[in-house]
Design a protein around this nucleic acid. Sequence first.
DNA 1: CATGAATGAGACTTCATTCAT
DNA 2: GATGAATGAAGTCTCATTCAT
Lengths: 214, 214, 214, 214
Amino acid sequence: MPTQGEATKRQLLKEQREAQILDAAARVFARKGYQRATTKEIASEAGVAEGTIYNYFDSKRDLLIAMASRLALDSLHELNSLPPREDVKAYVLALVTNRFDLLLKNIDLVRALMPEVLVDDDLRQAYMDEVLSPAVSYLGEYIDDRIQAGGFRKVKTDVVARTMIGAVMSFGFLWLQERSEVDERSHEELVSEVAGLFLDGLRVRPVEENDRES
Amino acid sequence: MPTQGEATKRQLLKEQREAQILDAAARVFARKGYQRATTKEIASEAGVAEGTIYNYFDSKRDLLIAMASRLALDSLHELNSLPPREDVKAYVLALVTNRFDLLLKNIDLVRALMPEVLVDDDLRQAYMDEVLSPAVSYLGEYIDDRIQAGGFRKVKTDVVARTMIGAVMSFGFLWLQERSEVDERSHEELVSEVAGLFLDGLRVRPVEENDRES
Amino acid sequence: MPTQGEATKRQLLKEQREAQILDAAARVFARKGYQRATTKEIASEAGVAEGTIYNYFDSKRDLLIAMASRLALDSLHELNSLPPREDVKAYVLALVTNRFDLLLKNIDLVRALMPEVLVDDDLRQAYMDEVLSPAVSYLGEYIDDRIQAGGFRKVKTDVVARTMIGAVMSFGFLWLQERSEVDERSHEELVSEVAGLFLDGLRVRPVEENDRES
Amino acid sequence: MPTQGEATKRQLLKEQREAQILDAAARVFARKGYQRATTKEIASEAGVAEGTIYNYFDSKRDLLIAMASRLALDSLHELNSLPPREDVKAYVLALVTNRFDLLLKNIDLVRALMPEVLVDDDLRQAYMDEVLSPAVSYLGEYIDDRIQAGGFRKVKTDVVARTMIGAVMSFGFLWLQERSEVDERSHEELVSEVAGLFLDGLRVRPVEENDRES
DNA sequence: CATGAATGAGACTTCATTCAT
DNA sequence: GATGAATGAAGTCTCATTCAT
């Protein structure tokens, strides 16, 4: 009869194993894409036998689902670490930085998930519901806030939120090729430039402010 | 011995067949994704035998490459149909509309290509070189133009160009799910809203224009 | 464009191939049982590649289904070749012989099917509906006939029909072990003995005929 | 050092465990068939860990062998509970009832064993030697007895014995499908009908009794 | 040129058995 | 003795590509 301590230890080992396999899968998926990745390679990368994978996950596909959940959790977690919203400029900068960091930190996961998200209906729905929508909502609420406080123009909140997030994400796409290209300096510059675009747009002094907003 | 006329006719037939197969492949890839699409289904969709595909293309993969070229050509062709650049607001509006239209018109192609572009190095390189970079260059040049003409703030041209294109493209991602959701009215609103964001940003009258641009 | 003759030839080839694969499968199933038989071995026995099997059958299981249909057809076909029913003794002899022959001729098929029929609900249903029930009906009708003609006692037709068929089939079970044991002489003796049992039973002169049939 | 009492208790526990596992295996085999049954499911059904099975049995196959022995024992045991042989009619009725009851009582075991018996040489040999042959011998001896006492016609004892047993067993096959169908009344009717067939055959008064038995 | 049957490598998954705890 | 995680061989099935007709 196992003592409670032993049970806990065993539970811990199981969780470690699960993470070990999931990490390996993420790396292999990132290298090869989901379809081209083989369970054999994942097993070898994780240092376990092929059959062991199936003691922790129901199928190859299940590995992908588990990854999406991980990303969703991390995305929310990161949003909650943002600074207070008083200083608009600082806040938008932090926001952009935040999303860039999330992207960079999870670039392997993203690389693994994106292709399948594009092709698989269930997975896309899950991604939209659990990752994209919460982020759009969060950003949308902030923009609304600022509009009512008089700091932002009366834009269509949801469209703008989506545009901003999309803009940031599209850099992830760029980084898929050569991450090395993105060094520290350019990364900060990038963030400030993108934040600047969102805050002030391209135009010098939009004189006829009132002619917009039908 | 075939006359020149016959040779031309034969050439024409060949091109028709090629297009017929490529169209079928695009539809199947869009439905199933590249990996899950089978040559059997493509053949059936094209109304030819499986072997016939291999008289026109070297491999399944070759079909994908041919599609990327098609998209590249169309992308450039569309850019060339833009109106003159005098009116900044109208022009940016046209630009955004232009990219949106390209995306919508080729949504099947995009859906087929994106996943593989994310995973396949050669294909990604081709896509970047032939589709993305030309578009970024084109937009970058225009922004440079306007900066020198004093209409735009001194932004980092390439970063901003890429951000704008990425923002537009990310809507394609959204449309992968339910295109029906995007009706005419909202589509125009969308374009104007996105164009507005790029031109004027979020902030109400950035009074201290000179405090930016470190 | 294939001529009609070519189309027919091709069709013929396809049917030959199908039979070739099915025969091979029957032999392997008979040797190993369905579960232990591998598609690899079936392919090798049929002299084709493993994949070829799947050009003709949807699954390994489909091979079994096809076999059951074959047996059903053959069973009916054999019943139709029975002699006229006038001479009761000759007829029952022919009947028993007929079923024995069917069994012997298809002993491989039976050996392949029986185990799965015992275990698989769908297959069992199919076997009952298409092989057993028709045979029971056929025999039952004959017995009814004879009862009304006054030649047979008033037995419960269905029970007796099933008992007779079961008795015959159970010899198949015996033959699964060593068919060699069953030589010509003993086979004929067997048939006449079994037929005799069914016709006259074990008892010497059942004097009190009327005390049965409650 | 364990005392003798402890050793006995230990022995008892061991046998209980063994039976517990064997019962579970019988149930699972009956549900799924031997091949499709998994040791995991057997363990779960028995309420032990998978590895524990291997402390009591050498292999999954060993479970099956143990079951065959059980059935053999039960078969003999049942035969020994038959009434005295004076009244022929009553005795044959009892005999048929006896075999039917054995079959019904062990229907799960039979369902588990039959498929494998058909396919596995060793198991079939064991089944024939330990279950079938003893029953055939027993019945054969009785028939011989009656023939010499003048009550039965001079039939070929072994053939008839086998036919009778086979006829009864074939009903087991029928019951594999829906046991519910077989209620008490029909069961008794069945027994009497089958016994009647064996005793008196189909024919009304076989007048020319002496023309048989060449 | 068109056809489509044949190929066979390789994918995912299952599961009886072992063994360290 | 009991446990159950790990193993890895083996199985079924898919599908891009070839080639004889």
